[in-house]
Simulated scan of single mutants.
Amino acid sequence: MSSAFPEEDQERAEFGEPRPAWSRVVILGAATLAVLLLGATIGMFLTQSLGQDAETAAPSPGVVEVGFAQDMAVHHLQAVTMANWARDHSTDPQVQQLAFDIASTQLEQVGRMKGWLMLWNKPEQAIGGYMTWMTDSPGHAHGGHGAAATGPATPAGLMPGMATNDELAKLRSLSGKELDVYFLQLMLRHHQGGTEMAQYTQDHSGLAAVKSLTNSILKSQSAEARVMTGMLADRGATPLPFS
């Protein structure tokens, strides 16, 4: 029987994990839906309240705002998938807590961005390559990762910091300390890529609600990156390359 919660099914299909008992599916699915709905509600509220007043209409979302919401939601969802796996399979309380915090925060932010896209009457995913909004927006030339999002550490079709299918397969094959270290390495690199996107949007967006979210992302992910760097050092490991 198909689950009422496709996000949970997709995650477990990716990692080849059998479905849990029906009660756990219902509880986790309901929690996931609740977080997404909360984020969507916050997103629509902030778009309306921060972007306008009684006399001034809210600025219209442009290429940067729409592209950021579409692509960062995809970027975040991979982080949620990795974090949920680590939370459920690590035996290290510190890793479990970090993974829970990352998944909860980023899932709420995904809901917020999807709420904006619905309010703006835009599709949830961009048509074409990722990150064209960082190169094609008028007057916003960007010398870093371009539309194709390719580079030494960024395979074709992926945004900066995202894990490949092979890396995800390796993550789910590990256990114990090896799992903890590899999760921290992948997530730290993932945060580095997300920070680039958030900083570009912070610098180029004129929408107050969007700038508020990017500011939150920059603060939280920078703090988490410092924590993960320290956790890796404590475990005798180093970050993965990022360029």
Rank of each mutant, 00 (worst) to 15 (best):
R12A: 10
V110M: 00
A79T: 00
F183V: 10
T229A: 00
A99K: 13
L38R: 05
D53L: 14
P61K: 02
M44H: 05
G39S: 05
M72E: 04
T135R: 03
A149P: 10
A86R: 03
A30I: 02
A73W: 13
A163H: 03
R12K: 04
L117I: 00
A34Y: 10
Y200G: 00
G139V: 00
G115T: 11
T105N: 03
D101L: 14
Q70G: 01
Q185K: 03
Q78K: 04
L33F: 15
A73G: 01
K219N: 11
P152H: 00
S90P: 11
L98D: 00
A40C: 09
E55V: 14
V64M: 01
A237N: 04
S212L: 05
N215S: 13
M159F: 05
Q97G: 13
A208D: 13
T238I: 12
E108M: 15
L119I: 12
R19N: 11
A223L: 07
G176S: 07
G115Y: 05
T135V: 08
T201F: 00
T164F: 13
H145M: 12
K211A: 04
G176M: 07
Q106Y: 10
G206I: 01
P152W: 10
D101C: 01
A141F: 15
Y182P: 00
G128N: 02
M131I: 12
K170R: 09
Q192F: 00
L36I: 04
Q221E: 01
L46T: 08
P239I: 04
T47I: 15
M187K: 04
H190Y: 12
A149S: 09
R172C: 07
A13D: 11
Q48W: 12
Q192W: 06
F183H: 02
G161I: 07
A223S: 13
E7W: 14
K211P: 12
G129K: 15
T32Y: 12
A69Q: 09
D180C: 04
H76A: 02
E17D: 15
A209H: 04
Q78A: 06
A208Q: 08
M159Y: 01
G151E: 08
A237C: 13
V227M: 13
T135L: 05
E14Q: 08
T91H: 06
G236A: 07
E178K: 08
Y182R: 06
R12L: 10
A40Q: 08
G39Y: 05
V227F: 06
A147W: 03
W133S: 12
N121M: 13
L188V: 12
E65P: 00
V181I: 11
P138W: 05
S137F: 01
P138T: 11
G128D: 08
T105Q: 07
L171K: 02
D234H: 09
M72N: 11
A126N: 11
G230I: 12
H75R: 02
D71M: 07
G51F: 02
Q10C: 05
E167T: 04
V210M: 06
F45P: 14
G143H: 10
P160M: 11
D136C: 03
V181P: 00
A69F: 08
E124C: 10
